[in-house]
Write a protein that binds this DNA or RNA. Structure first.
Length: 114
DNA sequence: CCGCTGACTGCGG
DNA sequence: ACCGCAGCCAGCG
């Protein structure tokens, strides 16, 4: 697991706007790796970012994350759907094109003041 | 090298 | 809706 991969994933997550979510698969597709790798990275380094904005493809969250995530969601206006153990992706999924653009923007090397 | 374990996904029963 | 399964792939013992 190289640092570059971690960097990419974290940046992609940071690019998800508040009140919106994307799936592990979405992140993987954007940064070029499988959803499980994204999950692995999130497990270890996800604590520094808004990890609650990343759900499974069906909008749910791993059991041990639900409690805290629900609070963040409430604060961001994401409605918790108990029957789904998560939220409705159809409603809260981020606009993928805009998200990808935001990701690229963040990826753009900040102008070094030389 | 082998087997097991995940913050996953899509399909089939 | 729930469950299992195969495919997925890195990490660990």
């Amino acid at each position: 697991m190289d640092d570059v991969a971690v960097e990419r994933v974290l940046r992609a997550v940071e690019a998800v706007p508040p009140g919106r979510v994307v799936s592990y698969g979405d992140v993987g597709a954007l940064v070029g790796m499988g959803p499980r790798q994204v999950g692995s990275i999130m497990r270890v380094w996800g604590g520094n970012v808004a990890w609650w904005r990343v759900t499974t493809a069906s909008g749910e969250l791993a059991e041990h994350l639900r409690g805290v995530a629900a609070e963040h969601w409430a604060a961001e206006g994401i409605l918790w759907a108990p029957s789904r153990r998560g939220c409705r992706m159809a409603v809260y999924r981020a606009d993928l094109a805009a998200w990808a653009a935001a990701y690229e923007e963040r990826n753009r090397t900040p102008p070094t003041p030389d």
